[in-house]
Simulated scan of single mutants.
Amino acid sequence: MVFVSIDISVAPVTTSRTAGKDAAPQRRSELASFLRSRRERLDPEVLGLPTGTRRRTPGLRREEVAQLAGVGVTWYTWLEQGRQINASVQVLDAVARTLRLDPAETEHLYQLADIPAVPAVNGCRRLDPEVQQILDGLDPLPASVVNGRSDILAWNRSYALLFPFLVNLPEDKRNSLWSCFTSPKCCHPFVNRSEDLSRMVANFRARYGRHVGEPAWEEFVKRLCAASPEFAELWAEHGVADGGVRVKVFRHPAIGELNVVVTTFDVAATPETRMTVYTPNDANTRERFELLREDSLPSGFTYPCGHSFDPPA
């Protein structure tokens, strides 16, 4: 079941790792309890281990987890006791596999262990099929689902017709922030380009505050700074803004100017994933949205610069 709720706020940047240092003992205690609960739910017999008659507690023993994960018994014991020890990504990954953790539990494990190099759990996690049904049901309102880094995870047909240049990109480059800063200015969809891009970067900076030091985020920022001097300049300003409801004006080569209200919803079933819906802000836009239906969008149009307007695949 998918719960969708309005999200018009962003957690303050002060909740990042700097603030987390003060909660380190509590986090280690939570990690110890979490590991113990995951270990105790496993069935030794299912894992091919002898059950015997001398097991005083349910699940696996600590030494069995250590053996299956290929780590030292003392090291794992200290980890489960909440001691202050160093844990690498590779070792925690082995522990997660041994304890049969699902993606959400694996991410939780890394957060409790205060490991910045969290594997790409968010980006790879599949959305529930009900999310796509919601998107499709919103037609002709364009709508999409993105993660914290602005990767486009899902969309409806109207969104594809509004932003074909974005949805036609390969999956590893299908990112709204990347597209907005690397696409030619002559084909850019924003009428108020400077204002909209500045706010996009400020919104991204607020989300980035919760992922400082994570390789996937740091590499994305590094690559985008290298690809777009404009992004690098805005990034250096350290502007921060929340999401909120905002108005944007798009320029579409086939149906003209669109004045829309952009509303963002949190998709609670997948952490740090949000649904963005575009609703008309005036009567003309409301009429033009009807043309976003697949069977009525005019074809054969080009941008004013002469570049072709490629329909979505």
Results as ranks from 00 to 15, higher is better:
residue 4 V to K: 02
residue 7 D to V: 10
residue 12 P to I: 09
residue 19 A to W: 09
residue 20 G to T: 12
residue 22 D to N: 11
residue 22 D to S: 14
residue 31 L to E: 02
residue 33 S to A: 10
residue 34 F to I: 12
residue 40 E to L: 03
residue 42 L to F: 01
residue 48 G to F: 02
residue 58 P to A: 09
residue 60 L to I: 11
residue 60 L to N: 05
residue 63 E to V: 13
residue 69 A to L: 11
residue 70 G to P: 07
residue 76 Y to P: 01
residue 78 W to F: 12
residue 84 Q to W: 08
residue 84 Q to Y: 12
residue 85 I to R: 02
residue 86 N to E: 06
residue 87 A to P: 00
residue 88 S to R: 07
residue 89 V to G: 00
residue 96 A to L: 09
residue 97 R to D: 15
residue 101 L to R: 03
residue 103 P to E: 07
residue 107 E to R: 15
residue 108 H to V: 05
residue 109 L to N: 01
residue 110 Y to D: 01
residue 111 Q to H: 10
residue 114 D to V: 08
residue 117 A to Y: 04
residue 121 V to P: 00
residue 123 G to V: 03
residue 124 C to N: 07
residue 124 C to T: 03
residue 129 P to D: 08
residue 129 P to Y: 02
residue 130 E to N: 09
residue 130 E to P: 00
residue 130 E to M: 13
residue 132 Q to T: 14
residue 137 G to A: 13
residue 138 L to F: 12
residue 140 P to V: 12
residue 141 L to D: 06
residue 142 P to D: 08
residue 143 A to D: 05
residue 148 G to H: 10
residue 149 R to Y: 04
residue 163 F to C: 06
residue 163 F to D: 00
residue 169 L to W: 03
residue 170 P to A: 01
residue 175 N to Y: 09
residue 176 S to D: 00
residue 178 W to Y: 09
residue 179 S to H: 09
residue 187 C to W: 01
residue 187 C to N: 15
residue 190 F to C: 07
residue 190 F to W: 15
residue 192 N to M: 07
residue 193 R to W: 09
residue 194 S to Q: 14
residue 198 S to E: 14
residue 202 A to M: 10
residue 205 R to N: 10
residue 208 Y to L: 12
residue 211 H to P: 00
residue 212 V to E: 04
residue 213 G to K: 05
residue 215 P to F: 08
residue 215 P to M: 07
residue 216 A to V: 13
residue 219 E to V: 10
residue 220 F to T: 04
residue 220 F to M: 11
residue 225 C to M: 12
residue 227 A to M: 01
residue 227 A to S: 11
residue 231 F to H: 09
residue 235 W to E: 02
residue 242 D to Y: 02
residue 243 G to D: 10
residue 248 K to C: 02
residue 257 E to F: 06
residue 258 L to G: 04
residue 261 V to H: 12
residue 273 T to V: 04
residue 275 M to K: 10
residue 276 T to E: 07
residue 279 T to D: 02
residue 284 N to R: 14
residue 286 R to S: 15
residue 288 R to C: 06
residue 289 F to Q: 08
residue 293 R to P: 03
residue 296 S to Y: 02
residue 297 L to A: 07
residue 300 G to M: 13
residue 304 P to V: 05
